[in-house]
Amino acid sequence: MIPLSHFMLISAGLFCIGLFAVLTRRNAIQVLIGIEFMINAAVLNFVAFGKYDKISGGGQMFALFAIVLAAAGVAVALAIILNVYKYFKSIDPSKTNTLKD
């Protein structure tokens, strides 16, 4: 039996690793991976709490929804990154400084 707090500590660590990637990486794909880590940390918390809730099953259901939303987010984000590269010839987020044409 794994205590709930250990799940939460792992997810806290994973979240901070993702936060670090988002703050410091200079490559949009790695920033995206950082965001995915943060989402996965949240999903781990959902699942860990969902273990104690069999009747309404909220934890596991929303974990499933969060995974699907994250996958949808990745698909759009990668399309945007490819377009940003086509326009700016770089995917460094700090170099893309305009939104309009």
Binding site: V43, V47, L64
Partner: peptide, 15 residues
Amino acid sequence: ALYLFALADFIALAQ
């Protein structure tokens, strides 16, 4: 694999 330890087999599979 960690999701399996929280008894969420389907979530692990979906992951």
